[in-house]
């Protein structure tokens, strides 16, 4: 099994946290994982993209040229990574902010998630990353939800600990959205 996922947005949209939590959770489940961040001078507002590879075997290059999954949070990110789309790529995009072109290939799986609107509805605009996470994990079913929530809880320390519940809710809304709109059967996994 191998899953190559690119997370892309602008700095501040929480893709870093999403990627780290994903990598941490699958690592704890005994899989090989690489997490390769973009890095540079911009901290807020710049391009932020992360390559995460999850595998049951040794991972060669941590750089992805053909993505199994693309998680796209803004238009420039789509422009940058659309050439990584291949047959059967799962494309999750934040439809609150991203407008896809009409000429996309037929053989890809598109999930249109109004993540910013959903996050806004539950009262925290910046939780759109967790909405996407919920949707993604619901479709790909990679990690038991409890494992992910455990990593989320341990990563939110100090003042941020209070944000756990809203992040959890955002994730559940993401799960709920794809289940209602894309006919997904989601097994949330055993509690650990």
């Amino acid at each position: 099994m191998i899953e190559k996922v690119i997370l892309a947005g602008y700095g501040g949209q929480g893709m870093m946290l999403f990627g780290k939590l994903l990598a941490q959770s699958v690592m704890m489940n005994g899989k090989y994982v690489t997490f390769y961040p973009s890095y540079g001078t911009e901290v807020r507002g710049g391009k932020a993209f992360y390559h995460v590879i999850i595998s049951t075997d040794y991972i060669f290059s941590p750089v992805i040229d053909e993505a199994d999954t693309l998680i796209i949070m803004n238009n420039p990110s789509f422009d940058k990574f659309q050439n990584c789309i291949v047959n059967n790529t799962h494309l999750f995009y934040n439809s609150s902010l991203v407008h896809l072109p009409n000429d996309l290939p037929d053989d890809i799986n598109i999930f249109k998630i109004p993540a910013t609107e959903i996050a806004n509805d539950i009262g925290n605009l910046v939780a759109s990353n967790m909405v996407m996470m919920g949707a993604y994990n619901c479709v790909k079913n990679l990690i038991p939800r409890s494992r992910f929530l455990y990593c989320l809880r341990t990563s939110l320390t100090g003042k941020k600990a209070a944000l756990f519940e809203i992040n959890k809710l955002a994730m559940e809304r993401g799960e709920q959205y794809v289940q209602e709109n894309y006919n997904i059967n989601y097994d949330i996994g055993q509690d650990e």
Partner: peptide
């Protein structure tokens, strides 16, 4: 190199 420095792995 930059990639090994920045890359996260177990």
């Amino acid at each position: 190199d930059a990639q090994i420095g920045q890359l996260m792995e177990p």
